[in-house]
Design a binder for these strands. Structure first.
Lengths: 202, 202
DNA sequence: ACCTGAACACCGTTCAAGT
DNA sequence: ACCTGAACACCGTTCAAGT
């Protein structure tokens, strides 16, 4: 049938979406392509590399955030990048788990991190803080969306949606982190009044 | 040899630490206990449940944070809870990956989340923000430590430590999130001056 | 109560050989 | 270039039977 690498990746994504990450096996994928398992190794060197390619495809199919814009609007663009990543992950079954794994082991899916760094470059953060801030945001989005997708699917399996987790929870948590970053961006900027009291005693 | 459940969990943790999560199989564990694989199912109903028990054991062996203390010192206690969790995870090979998985699928390892909620109860956050803040902190610690442990092990495999990632990176990222939370705690508290400017234009 | 023996239904990967 | 056939070295889990 003369398949190409793109056919393999596209079919793998279809198997992921309809049967889940646990059922995305080389043997299952081969069956779906009407081919013997060994034939897959002509298009892809290993399952690990295939999964990285599928993760990249998930992100490629998702919405593209605005990475450039007015420098002062960087917090809004940070929210946009995070929101686009979340949307991309929620579009395919188990995509959050897949992309989290691929990112954690540094096999690919590095576009979101690069986008976050690009936006943060406009924030004028103190030296060396940008990578830390980008990773913190990435961990938040991946962790939150993994939670969300896991519970969403657990709810879909049962009869009743057990916990009506509001979509705004993502925005709230994200706001926490973005504000923490904004605080660092404003500290030491001349003429910017900043004072945060955390003493709780009445 | 008449093993008990605790022997199985303890040996599983030893296999995890010396051979890694990928090599922690029921068959390997059985061999280590000098027993046939089927014997394990007398002590544990499934591998999933075993992994949850191992994750709990990792946390039980880690340092215990101070959850109670002066109400106003809640940010310091948040840092303590986060730091203890990180320390517990770094103490065993692949523990961050294991605990992340167990937490994500809600199979156990729920103590850190409970501790974070207990501390945040002293922060007097706006209604409903506590669970979101606790999850955000948990995602940060798990994500960061997974990164750290993965790169640590990649460095240990190679000859030279390729990236001298400073330990303070954890504290910096954590500070970002804690400050974001502190901002919410202070907002609307009478007599507390708060002003954060994020307009970046000169 | 704890374990063995044997089986079931799977995995990822390699490699000589075919077209 | 793309694929088959056959094999290698594994998985988690079940279950009747033994002590």
């Amino acid at each position: 049938m003369a398949h190409h690498r793109e056919d393999v990746v596209r079919t793998a994504l279809a198997v992921l979406d309809t049967h889940g990450l646990a059922d995305l096996t080389m043997r299952r994928l081969a069956a779906e392509l009407d081919v013997r398992p060994s034939a897959l190794y002509h298009h892809v060197p290993s399952k690990q590399v295939l999964l990285a390619a599928v993760a990249d495809e998930v992100l490629r199919r998702g919405p593209r955030p605005d990475v450039v814009g007015p420098a002062g609007a960087w917090p809004a663009r940070l929210v946009d990048v995070a929101g686009c990543l979340r949307e991309a992950l929620l579009a395919y079954r188990d995509a959050a788990e897949l992309v989290s794994t691929v990112v954690a082991f540094g096999l690919g899916a590095d576009r979101p991190y690069a986008d976050l760094v690009a936006v943060l470059d406009d924030a004028g953060l103190p030296d060396g803080l940008t990578p830390t801030a980008a990773r913190t945001l990435l961990h938040f989005v991946l962790g939150h969306t993994l939670d969300e997708q896991t519970h969403l699917q657990a709810g879909a399996a049962g009869a009743i949606a057990d916990a009506p987790r509001p979509g705004s929870d993502f925005a709230v948590g994200l706001g926490l982190v973005v504000d923490g970053i904004a605080l660092r961006a404003s500290v030491g900027r001349p003429g910017t009044p900043v004072r945060v009291e955390v003493d709780d005693r009445p």
